[in-house]
Design a protein around this nucleic acid. Structure first.
Lengths: 221, 221
DNA sequence: ACCTGAACACCGTTCAAGT
DNA sequence: ACCTGAACACCGTTCAAGT
């Protein structure tokens, strides 16, 4: 009866998809992947768990929306000048929000994955890769960034929170050094290098190896 | 191995870690990652859910044991002649048991992950990589194999069971072709190549790019 | 020493009842 | 149209009680 010309006045704290996703990101950041439940989310938003379903279809959709909300700004046009910059932007976003890594590696073909593919694609095309190798090159880089990013996030999550990084790496190095010499000769031998390595640096070294491999395609031999 | 005295006689169907892990692998293979619950496992083993805890500490340990049980034979000495063979052995194991990919990417530094690292390390060392680049090279390959393997498993899982592969790829290709031209010009442009690509081939192409990049390290320029 | 299964403290999701 | 919150059908894990 009041007509539909004027938007209906709403309480300032009315539920919306945006507010729900925002609260979900906070819960995930603060308490990790186990921290997001519909009951806790409803509590924070001062409503019942059922209300959330008026704005998101299910938990999977909520996680995908939260992932895209974190990754979209990280992959804005200004940031992504080259392949290494795109890779580091994704790595750092996962480092700051480890649940993003898990989600990316689990819900691919989502908007977030497409953003990475598109950015990498443009940069690889600018490199002048042979047309027949372009799709495979972009796929390898995208899959490496997302797959290995997720792997690093899982690694980080597996470590008890508050553990000193150096202590942890030393512990792993000692474990490696004590492996069975017949079954794990190589791993034993490089145990010392595990203690000193840096995840971010190593992530980037992998990107550089792939880029080296791609550049080599142009001039065979 | 060789018992000190004689092993105690047991009922043929007595619980054991081995029987539990075996039953877990079956449940995972048949019904996917959601198919493994302590109640269903207990039902299959004709016992109560609590009994399982006498042989495994928790669900995480059970999943890790199941993963290693599948991967260990795939990485036996005879199979792994070179890096590509190791990579394909892992890819095919994940293809046959998609839950292995998830588990590998989520519980690294587990025995299964170490097996891959060791195999790859031996082969890379045999390639004669400069000592300073060896650890990063082995890490890049291992992370690619495990991370991207997990990604492919997630992709496979996301597709409704029974969906024809060609139909699915065509659907994705159409989605890509209809993306926003301003936001996704590259992805739109290569949509047709998505339709024709082969996951296994592309996985291997990524390995080859990294190997190319590694070989290039020896002779700079 | 190992098994049993009820009980505990949770989940995601649904849905009748409200406004 | 949207919200509320009890209810449903599950979980992993624990633990007293059995053998």
């Amino acid at each position: 009866m009041t007509g539909r010309t004027r938007p209906i006045e709403r309480r300032a704290d009315a539920l919306s998809r945006e507010r729900i996703v925002e609260a979900a990101v906070t819960l995930l950041d603060v308490d990790g992947e186990g921290g997001l439940t519909f009951r806790r989310l409803a509590e924070r938003l001062r409503t019942g768990p059922g209300a959330i379903y008026n704005h998101v279809a299910n938990k999977g959709e909520l996680l995908a929306a939260a992932t895209d909300a974190v990754l979209a700004p990280a992959l804005s046009a200004e940031v992504a000048e080259d392949v290494r910059a795109v890779a580091l932007a994704v790595f750092d976003a996962i480092d700051a929000h480890p649940w993003v890594g898990t989600q990316l590696a689990f819900a691919p073909s989502q908007p977030a994955m497409l953003r990475v593919f598109e950015r990498i694609g443009r940069r690889v095309r600018a490199l002048g890769v042979p047309a027949g190798a372009e799709f495979a090159s972009v796929s390898a880089l995208t899959n490496y960034i997302v797959g290995v990013g997720g792997l690093n996030a899982a690694n980080a999550r597996a470590v008890a929170p508050g553990t000193d990084r150096t202590d942890f790496l030393t512990t792993v190095a000692v474990e490696w050094a004590n492996l069975d010499p017949d079954e794990f000769p190589f791993t034993r031998d490089v145990a010392g290098q595990m203690r000193d390595h840096d995840d971010r640096e190593q992530f980037l070294a992998g990107i550089d190896l792939i880029l080296n491999g791609i550049r080599r395609l142009g001039r065979p031999g």
